[in-house]
Design a protein around this nucleic acid. Structure first.
Lengths: 141, 141
DNA sequence: TTTTAATTTTGTAATCAGTACAAATTTCTA
DNA sequence: TAGAAATTTGTACTGATTACAAAATTAAAA
């Protein structure tokens, strides 16, 4: 638990109880939860927690590069505390989101030839796949 | 103008006046407009047009692979009628969205090594870059 | 043609994720 | 300890998107 606190500080984030709880939850739940899910899960053990705080905190985490806010789902934002470069796959049938490794582990923009567009300064790269996950492929009649 | 009609039919889309107008607008305006922008632009010359129709039509176009609905901007959906594979860059300062070519023109998933994940059936790939566009780099003090 | 069925469009009302804002609380600093 | 700065909270609001059912248009059948 102090691990989380140290992790936040290493990212330049002041470790308040709320921030620790949120980051702790994200590190334990890598299933790309929604904001709602984070709030619901923490609300019971921390009844005073406000949804605005969750939003504020996530915005802060993003700015400090401690979380990725994914727009892969058209309805809700999804959270991901894994900061190593990787892509995401969303199943169009069950909606689940999967982490997907990228060739030679990273440098996604370079892989795609973005380095040749020297005029643009890329600060982040997001790669979203959509299709059918293994389970839903076999379900499909 | 009949070109658009034929294009829709080639995609398996019945060419109603509204659909023709919307597709025509998207083909003429490649600046990744919002739904609102499409509606506003067409509303004057087609006063009966409803915003619901715009939404319905775009959903249909997407299903028929005649348009890409981009989630790169966190506020609004953006439209793109260019169906050749390419990536998108959004400037974090001015918000503009740019088309970006991809190495050897396409096969984006393969470039990233997604073909090796044989268990997932990828149907579409979206690549979003964020950073500073050339113009905003020089503006930045 | 007429009639009927199917498709498409329209407008209004509702939903719901996300934000604005100011008060309350906590933490830091002098 | 007092006061300033940072953080959290709750409520009200916004605004994009959807639900839905009526109206209009188009296609098909007779």
């Amino acid at each position: 638990m102090e691990k989380v606190q140290e992790y936040l500080m290493s990212k330049g984030i002041r470790p308040s109880p709320q921030r620790i709880a949120i980051m702790d939850y994200l590190l334990d739940n890598c299933n790309h939860p929604t904001v709602e899910a984070v709030y619901d899960a923490l609300h019971t053990s921390m009844p005073t927690l406000s949804k605005t705080t969750v939003y504020n905190t996530l915005k802060l985490f993003e700015k400090k590069q401690a979380v990725q806010i994914l727009n892969i789902d058209e309805r809700n934002v999804r959270l991901d505390a894994t900061m190593e470069p990787h892509a995401h796959f969303q199943c169009m049938r069950c909606g689940k989101i999967f982490d997907v490794p990228v060739k030679n582990g990273g440098k996604m923009a370079e892989l795609l030839g973005m380095n040749e567009m020297t005029d643009f300064e890329v600060q982040q790269t997001q790669i979203y796949y959509k299709g059918l996950c293994p389970h839903c492929q076999s379900e499909k009649e």
